[in-house]
Design a binder for these strands. Sequence first.
DNA 1: AGCACGCCGACT
DNA 2: GTCGGCGTGCTC
Length: 804
Amino acid sequence: MNIASVIVDVPARQTDRTFDYLIPDRLLGYIQPGMRVKVPFGPRNVQGFVTGLKGESEFAKLKEIAETLDLTPVLNEELLKLGDWLTEKTLCYKISAFQAMLPAALKAKYEKKLALAQGVFPKDLSDSVGRLFKDSREIKWDESSLKNLLPSLQKEAAEGRIEVIHEVRDKVRKKKLKHVYPAVEKDELEKQKALLGQRAKGQEKLLCFFIDDPKPIELRELIGKLDISAASIKGLVKKGILQEEAIEVYRDPYETREFVKKKPLNLTPSQEKVIGPILSSIGEDRHEVFLLYGVTGSGKTEIYLQSIQQVLDKGEEAIVLVPEIALTPQMVTRFKERFGDLVAVMHSGLSAGEKYDEWRKIQRQEVKVVVGARSAIFAPFENLGIIIIDEEHETSYKQEENPRYHARDAAIQRAAFHRCPVVLGSATPSLESFARAQKGVYTLLNLPKRLNNKPLPPVEIVDMREELRDGNRSMFSRKLFEKLEDRLEKREQTVLFLNKRGHSSFVMCRDCGYVANCPHCDITLTYHRFNDRMKCHYCGFDEGVPSVCPECGSEHIRYFGTGTQKVEEELAKLLPHARVIRMDVDTTGRKGSHEKLLNSFQEGNADILLGTQMIAKGLDFPNITLVGVLSADTMLNLPDFRSSEKTFQLLTQVSGRAGRHDLPGEVVIQTYTPEHYSVELAGTQDFDQFYNQEMMVRKIHKYPPFYYISLVTVSHAELMKAVSVAEKITRHISLKLSEEAVVLGPVASPIPRINDRYRYQCLIKYKREPGLEKALKSILEHYQQETASGQLQISVDLNPYLLM
DNA sequence: AGCACGCCGACT
DNA sequence: GTCGGCGTGCTC
């Protein structure tokens, strides 16, 4: 077994297979599947993953593995298999699947360098080349600065005086800090203390400290604690009494926070009823998927916590997925309060290094529970006992780049391997999951009542067209405004929700109707008040606001629309005494600012919390008694078959923020389409009826959960090329599929151009098409050269959540 | 992805 | 005649 199969870090169709390498003697018995290695590949070195070991290879002249990058495998056997599954399910490259399962810090960083050959000095080279090495024997390969030296470099390299090095490194280093500890026994420390001179106050303090506690301590901490200088430590180190060493430390994003340990709460009878099947599934090592359908405030989290406790008691581990966890600090707090140091947290707000450290804690079995966003589903636990997905219906569980996986599917895959339950929790389950529960594929668990039987808040729907007819041109209906004033008077809090999607500010000419568009994408530029500029949210293009209309020359050009900033301005005008906290991408950009704003609101530093999607979930503050939705229907017009579902879910979620505690709550929903069933039924919070109605619509239009869908998007800088390739692909797919399948297109994507590339797409709806995956693979293969060069892009999404 | 090998145009 | 354009194909 001295040969390793390796998947190399070259994401291309031609290299999407294993390559065999000889394991050098010094690494024999050490290299295991799942380790990262550095291997020579063509003329350079690349990172690779060992996927298996074998005794012989069909390939005659094998190269040797250059070195290992890990001491222990970063992917265990289960995760290696899961990588294969991901590759198959999403048609991505093996290497992309592996990389998706690991923290970004472990991704290789490549650096091309020039170095002097052994025994060669700058003076041995021609003047121009020799000058490059005057400071160091190694320099970075910098295309631009070396440009005119290329011929002479080539000559020196050919004659062996300099060489090209391809370096492979981890992206992020382990964080190491200098630690100090005694080098001698306690009685020796005592002896040395007696020998110290009168003036050696610092050294005396140090010795006292270590006589008390000889454990290693971080240098800076020691200096701060004893109020001494680094020189005192140096002195003792020199005498050989103390020792210094760089020890790996974890970056702990929550280290400054104190968590008070909390006990499990008593379960209500209905909670008891629901947790029963989950606990027995855990106890019997049985894989089962539960759909925990519980209204907002029905105590789902406590079910999660107590199920996990059972798993921990069994000596197993738990994964909890939450959507964009940075946005729900309350959730993290509850887990930390219950399980303390056993919890690792993984979310997008952490730096690459912090994420890596949390991952290391899991790998080293130092934690038992991970709470995290989508990618936490790949936490390298060995004995999973439960996987929980909170807010199961959230679309952020679907990754919108390769590998385009859905965390729910990966969860079920992993749980089946570990023979443990998956709990999907939601107040508004996705249609897909609910349908599966109805069919008996998932086990449905119901929590129909809020804790303490608090009623759901009454919801009033206001028709904004009527408001307009009655001459109210403000963005607040009279009803909402009245209630706002009332809450201000009573010193209770209000949450105002603005459905921002498709509703951000833009710049328009009031005379000719010209709207500022991105010159590279067919999309309106979004206006940002804080720097008075317009920005494209797809390619990042950014431009100042023109003072005159570029079409007609009119000066009446200004920003338009109802962004949060604009609402804030209007609030300031109408209710100048109200204290408003605004939460959107602009105000929560910086790390931790989100939490700060929420804390400030919780402490009562504001009367109104104004925000977008991000305030729809997880807020649980006792003083919120009014929730206002400013525009309920802005999502309904998006080209997305899930838009009704999303609207219903969002409105229900937001409504759930009101009156969760002692004070009763109220909800006002403003809309231009009060008759739409998703708005109307969100008003009565009638999920069952919504489900029935929406299922009918899906059936008629052949959408999930009745049909599967797949989306192929073709993009190219030339319109004609994009169209013709899309056409060929569509034709090819149609030929390969059965009568039952529907192939739509090709049509221009809803955003027909992004970053100067035209986009055409083909949508496939089908029930059972065993030939589809093969057809798609052969298409990707067929166009591999053109896609490799970047000219042409073909993206395939089996089960897309965004049809853009 | 890189990089080398290989076959046709405008240049000292 | 040669330098160099980037199409094609390989990397254990």
